[in-house]
Lab assay of single mutants.
Amino acid sequence: GKELVLALYDYQEKSPREVTMKKGDILTLLNSTNKDWWKVEVNDRQGFVPAAYVKKLDP
């Protein structure tokens, strides 16, 4: 199944490769191989958020 992450903080995108999220958002995790930036999908948009700003949810 899909892996989900919880947004721990608000994040405002600073480049087109990033996405904005609000604290409490549930996002689909697409790629977590980079320790600093994780690729997520939110509202049909894909992009990166700081890994420290999200937490993996237990399945």
Rank of each mutant, 00 (worst) to 15 (best):
M21G: 01
K56F: 07
N31F: 04
T33W: 08
V49F: 00
E13P: 07
L6M: 13
D58I: 04
N43D: 10
L27N: 01
K22I: 11
V42G: 12
R45P: 00
V54M: 07
S15I: 05
E41Y: 06
Y9F: 09
A52Q: 10
V42Q: 13
N43Q: 15
S15M: 09
Q12N: 08
L30N: 04
G1L: 06
D58A: 08
D58H: 13
M21S: 01
T20D: 03
Q12R: 11
N31A: 13
V42A: 15
F48A: 04
V42E: 04
D36R: 10
A7I: 00
T33I: 07
E13S: 12
Y53T: 12
L27K: 01
F48M: 12
Y53M: 15
W38H: 04
L4D: 05
Y53I: 13
K22Y: 06
K14H: 15
S15H: 13
T33E: 12
Q12F: 12
V19E: 01
I26N: 05
V19A: 06
K23H: 08
D10Q: 02
M21Y: 01
S32P: 09
V42M: 11
W38A: 08
D44M: 12
N34I: 05
Y9S: 14
Q46T: 13
G24H: 04
F48I: 12
L4H: 10
D36S: 10
G47Y: 03
F48Y: 09
L4R: 10
Q46A: 15
P59F: 06
R45I: 06
L57W: 12
K2N: 07
M21H: 01
T28R: 13
S15E: 11
E13F: 04
Y53W: 09
G1A: 14
P16V: 07
N43Y: 11
Q12V: 12
P16W: 04
D10W: 00
A51Q: 07
V5K: 01
L6H: 12
Q46L: 08
A51E: 03
A52N: 12
R17C: 08
N31W: 03
S32N: 08
L8V: 08
Y11G: 01
S32Y: 11
K2F: 06
L57N: 04
M21W: 00
G1C: 11
V54T: 05
Q12C: 09
L8Y: 03
T20M: 04
D10S: 08
A52H: 07
L6C: 15
V5C: 13
V54H: 00
A52W: 07
M21V: 12
K22T: 13
P50A: 00
A7S: 08
Y9M: 13
L57H: 15
T28I: 07
K2G: 07
V19H: 04
T28C: 11
L57E: 05
A51N: 03
L57D: 04
K35S: 12
V40M: 01
K56Q: 14
V5R: 02
V19R: 02
Y53H: 10
E3Y: 06
G24V: 00
E41K: 11
N43M: 13
V49D: 03
L57C: 13
P16E: 08
S15L: 10
W38I: 05
K23A: 10
L27H: 03
P16R: 11
P16H: 11
K22V: 13
K23N: 06
T20K: 04
K23Q: 12
Q46I: 07
S15K: 13
Y11K: 01
W38S: 04
N34Q: 10
P50E: 01
L30P: 01
K22A: 15
K14Y: 03
E3T: 04
P59V: 10
V49G: 02
V5Y: 11
I26V: 15
W38G: 01
L30W: 06
K56L: 11
A7N: 00
I26Q: 12
T33G: 10
E3M: 14
V40Q: 01
T28P: 13
R45L: 09
G1R: 10
I26W: 07
D44V: 06
L8K: 11
G1M: 13
N43G: 15
Q12W: 08
V54Y: 00
Y53K: 14
E41I: 10
K35E: 14
K22C: 14
V54A: 04
W38M: 08
V54P: 00
A52T: 14
K2S: 09
V5S: 05
L27R: 01
G47L: 04
P16I: 11
L30T: 08
Q46D: 08
E13G: 11
T33A: 11
L8H: 05
Y53S: 15
S15Y: 07
A52Y: 08
D44I: 03
K2L: 05
T28D: 08
G47R: 02
V5H: 04
A51Y: 01
V40K: 01
G24L: 01
D44K: 09
V42P: 00
V40F: 00
R17T: 13
M21L: 10
N31R: 06
K56W: 06
V54N: 02
G24D: 09
V42H: 14
K55Q: 12
A51D: 01
K56E: 10
M21P: 00
